[in-house]
Design a protein around this nucleic acid. Structure first.
Lengths: 193, 193
DNA sequence: AAAATGACCAGATTGGTCTTTTGGTCATTA
DNA sequence: TAATGACCAAAAGACCAATCTGGTCATTTT
């Protein structure tokens, strides 16, 4: 010990404060106090509050990717993997203080910085899924298609089913959503006699 | 002439004012003035401002349905009709002052009454599409499925493609969206060798 | 000398007060 | 009897002093 990694301390303090109070309600002094560091010190590592926040978001994206990687299975079907991936993202969002708080702040206050951050996260998920889709196209498991639009549509559909649907209906279970996903996106509605 | 249908006058004045200023910025006095009617008179026909607004929304829903009915074609395919219907709804939203203003007010101010009204409209569209889907199931044109969830998914997917996608990308054309819709929802992504 | 700090500042935010506006009522009018 | 607009309570808005906050930098600490 003795030598302390101040940047790490600040990063952790910021992560904690953003998780606890959200973006707007987190003050730089608060972060400094939590990190046991002078306020000025923060500015030797980060140019602005926003830059500090962006770093936290980058870490968040990495964590989500890690969680998804953990459930992917090379030998499983495309459909199975996509379902696992999207469900994992959904679970992550609902079980981590930071995402819970940011979703709330975005909804209730519409803080611009937070809105942008959440779009970044969404974009990162789409990028990640593009990879999975690209592979499935190459192996011939699915038809050729634009990977980005496909990933985008999958994400939107998944969240529609799991989030928007339950605004007016009893929520759909994990298994149900998997089945719907398969019907609509994989098999298609057409009768192929 | 001579005898004037005051209720109609009020209704038209309200429609105009809501279109011009949105829900919040429309005052009952304003409506009265536009209708050439005393403020109290409004309250002999409508209990509250909200009730007056609801009536306007009901008319809006009817107008949207009419626009959709105009483009439906009994002899066309399910896919073709669904596309026409959704595109017509989209066009309507973008070309009518009232919907433009309300979408804006919902986004910028989040007025509760407006949010609820827009959900009502969405719900009505889903209901309407349920009918189309139900028929297609009965004729065997598409697989059996829950008509409500299907309608819901179709609407969400369509608006994702036409609205959300162009937040970060060049907009997709009408024809492109039709093709994507067919690929994702009708044919499905699976290779069926 | 280099790194860390917190007093400091301009601009933003907040909380509280006073003023205006607005939805809704009802006694009066036509 | 139907219509009206003056009227009212409550909500929204304007206003302003006091506080707070992101960011800087002269001073202190190591």
């Amino acid at each position: 010990m003795g030598i302390i990694d101040r940047k790490k301390l600040i990063h952790e303090a910021a992560a904690k404060s953003f998780s606890l109070y959200g973006y707007k309600a987190t003050t730089m002094e608060q972060v400094a106090k939590l990190a046991n560091v002078g306020k000025g010190t923060i500015y030797t590592f980060y140019k602005t509050k926003e830059e500090l926040f962006e770093e936290i978001i980058k870490t968040l994206i990495i964590d989500i990717k890690l969680a998804v990687e953990q459930v992917l299975d090379e030998s499983a079907t495309f459909h199975e993997n996509v379902n696992r991936a999207l469900y994992t993202v959904h679970e992550f969002r609902e079980s981590h203080q930071l995402t819970i708080k940011l979703i709330q702040e975005e909804r209730d206050m519409g803080t611009q910085t937070v809105v942008e951050a959440m779009q970044q996260v969404e974009q990162a998920i789409v990028q990640y899924m593009m990879g999975i889709i690209q592979k499935a196209i190459e192996t011939g498991e699915i038809k050729p298609c634009d990977p980005e639009i496909t990933a985008f549509v999958m994400l939107k559909m998944y969240f529609s089913l799991i989030i928007d649907w339950q605004r007016n209906h009893p929520p759909l279970g994990k298994e149900e959503i998997s089945k719907l996903f398969e019907l609509y996106l994989l098999k298609g509605l057409s009768q192929n006699d």
